[in-house]
Amino acid sequence: MSDKDNEAIDDAEIDRQAEVWEKIIHRPEFEALLAAKKRFIVPACLFFLVYYFALIVIVGWFPDLAKKQIGPANIAYWFALSQFFMAWIVAWVYTRAAARFDRLADDLLGEHANPDTDKK
């Protein structure tokens, strides 16, 4: 079976709507929102992935370092425990940044109260 219903929607109509949305994504406010999000989210993801896999790498391939005792426990345990705090701190920093994204988005929607006329 094919997607006749979906394709039946007029291509011209899709293009007309796409043009309206294209205009919105090229507004400076929207570009600023996306840029701000990207600036935060991409480095944040890289940071947590590197931090997490560093634990596995150290534990797996550098056992002598991992076994080194610091205070009551070894580096392996402290590093593992630090992952919890790392996750909470990244989450906390993100909520603060996201509050800023929310304001940018609200400004954009406020100026542009109803960008679409179609409703699903």
Binding site: N6, I14, D15, A18, W21, I24, L33, A105, D116
Partner: peptide
Amino acid sequence: EHGSEAKFAEMKVRAHTGHG
């Protein structure tokens, strides 16, 4: 895919602003 690319801008706005 015409539909997919034409709807990308709309989806972007909705995904990032919660509009609609």
